[in-house]
Design a binder for these strands. Structure first.
Lengths: 240, 240
DNA sequence: ATTTTAAACTTGTTTAGACAAGTTGTCAAT
DNA sequence: ATTGACAACTTGTCTAAACAAGTTTAAAAT
């Protein structure tokens, strides 16, 4: 038996997703949750806090937890989710073309200087992939994975899913990422792979992903067709 | 005396910002925090959880809380922060030109349909502002504020800071926002106000901001020069 | 010297209880 | 009818304690 609060969180979230608890209505009170799930109040509160953090509910003191209209899953960049996981959530046919694979090259540090202060040109495996969505090439992903963490990356992992390989096969625990979104003019490679006209722009998402022990191990530059790009965010106002 | 955990959070964050606790080193253990601040363990854990959520530390079971390299404040869109608050954090000279002010107009619902399912063309006050940074016009902000919540918006509030007016003068409690970033071709108004060439692109941030009682009250379309736009995000991997 | 074991640390989860503080409805006094 | 006080709800914060589980170090056994 593990993690009651996570079970409660999952159950409540599922019921919100399935409109058992509809937007504008209140969830059962904290004391009622104690009875419903046979838990203590703090355990229920932990689940509610996470729902609030993720934008499912708004807690109102003295009244209760009201369900708010929630963002549906958005393609292709919110949180840390692998391309394959996203593709499965959406109803789209996707293709994944590995068109570059180099081992023992140096990390292009200048590409990620704005994301991290100190960085060295450590040896990495470089993977270039083209994401084709509904028959149209939409995204170029350039991944650089530290050789120190992943000595021998199988090409099949790039073809399938890097995240599945890291987590399931290697047992790596991916914890967090810092990412940055900018708009830049398309370069020759963009124009060729994404079939863009001269003068076109691309949305560039650069990210540094770290493990649970706080070591960064994956650097990604993701270049999106401007007209297909969409990023959605939920943010809370931090008082003072 | 109020909110011990927030006090501990502030103190630790300040010490991280000032490099008293440097990236790569560990914070005092939870039991040490109890002694240091005279608090119970759960109170300290609450502060640590928030620091982890905000990207300041990474908790490692069995070891401790390690300080990680933290994003510095980014112009102009991360979290819910007013333009004025951001401008004060950065070292830039800014100007704020109100070039549109209309009362009792209808909310342009089609502009925000992707952010909210149900919406009606309620009466709003419409404000158009041009943000000039270091002498260059960089951002157009179009705000639509519900008349039902803010019956009479003083023009001076638009000139100064809408958020300061909402929070300090009206006592409104701003709680959360959903926002969406897309890239779109510049329209005539963009080209004129931002001095753009034909064929240029702009980064568009549309957001719906809600109060603590979960009622949405402010709709904003923010249009940025593509070459100046930058968005930074910290995300944690949610397991399973 | 190497391996195993155990102790002492760390964080993770849960409990039961207390009190503060915001909201709502009821009933009594006006 | 209006007002005021109160009770009964709600969430917010904090405590002290227990046990689980991961990490590290050192002592003990091999």
């Amino acid at each position: 038996m593990v993690n009651k609060s996570a079970l409660v969180y999952d159950d409540l979230r599922q019921k919100i997703d399935r409109d058992v608890y509809q937007p504008g209505t209140y969830l059962p009170s904290e004391n009622q949750l104690c009875q419903l799930y046979g838990i203590s109040r703090e355990t229920g509160r932990k689940a509610l806090a996470e729902l609030a953090e993720d934008g499912y509910i708004q807690k109102i003191r003295g009244k209760g937890s009201i369900v708010i209209e929630h963002r549906q899953y958005e393609f292709p960049v919110s949180g840390i989710v692998s391309y394959k996981e996203l593709a499965e959530k959406m109803n789209v046919t996707t293709e994944n073309v590995v068109y570059g694979f180099e081992e023992h090259v140096s990390l292009p540090v200048q590409m990620f200087t704005s994301l991290r202060v100190e960085m060295t040109a450590e040896p990495v495996t470089a993977v270039k992939r083209l994401r084709v969505i509904d028959g149209e090439p939409d995204i170029i992903d350039k991944d650089y994975i530290l050789t120190a963490i992943v000595p021998k990356l199988p090409k099949a992992a790039a073809q399938d899913s890097l995240y599945a390989y890291f987590e399931n096969d290697l047992g790596l625990e991916i914890a967090y990422a810092t990412k940055e979104i900018t708009m830049e003019p398309a370069n020759d490679e963009d124009r060729e792979q994404l079939h863009l006209d001269p003068g076109a722009y691309v949305a560039v998402v650069r990210s540094v992903t770290s493990l649970a022990d706080a070591t960064p191990f994956q650097f990604t530059e993701s270049r999106h067709r401007a007209d297909k790009f969409r990023f959605r965010d939920f943010a809370r106002r931090t008082k003072k």
